[in-house]
Amino acid sequence: MKTNDLILQTTTKVVLFIIILFSVYIFFAGHYTPGGGFVGGLLTSGAIILLTLAFDMKTVKQILPFNYIYMAATGLLFAGGTAAGSLLFNVPFLTHAFGDVNIPILGETALHTATLFDLGVFLVVVGVTMTIIQTIGVDE
């Protein structure tokens, strides 16, 4: 899949970061406004796919040398671990905790274990989508 489309490549370089930033925003905002791990993850993988379309699989693998299956597994571990973590505190599986924490500079913020769970979802979605795309893409 060797393409040489200058306009697409140039735009991609700019747009890529916007999409990824947006996906990170949407991931963190998910608890209050539309978004969350699913959409965030899908957007990120969308960005990587765009990169793949503009350049080619090899280049993308050089830029982002992730093993996406490991990423999906890590995500599952995160989600499952967050869920099981509540057992350590003698509360039912999947009980989330939250609290207000004062972080310097940023000020009063709510910290939430659900975010960790959502991070797991995010990683799984990116890992799975990219595994699918990559395995098909490099086939033959």
Binding site: G35, G75, H96, V125, T131
Partner: peptide
Amino acid sequence: GKNMVNVILVDFRGFDTLFEITVLTIAA
């Protein structure tokens, strides 16, 4: 949380989501 859909997914019905991502991983 304020986004009810997201809160249902990650908190109230987190089990569903946990298994969902498991299914996804299996598919991958």
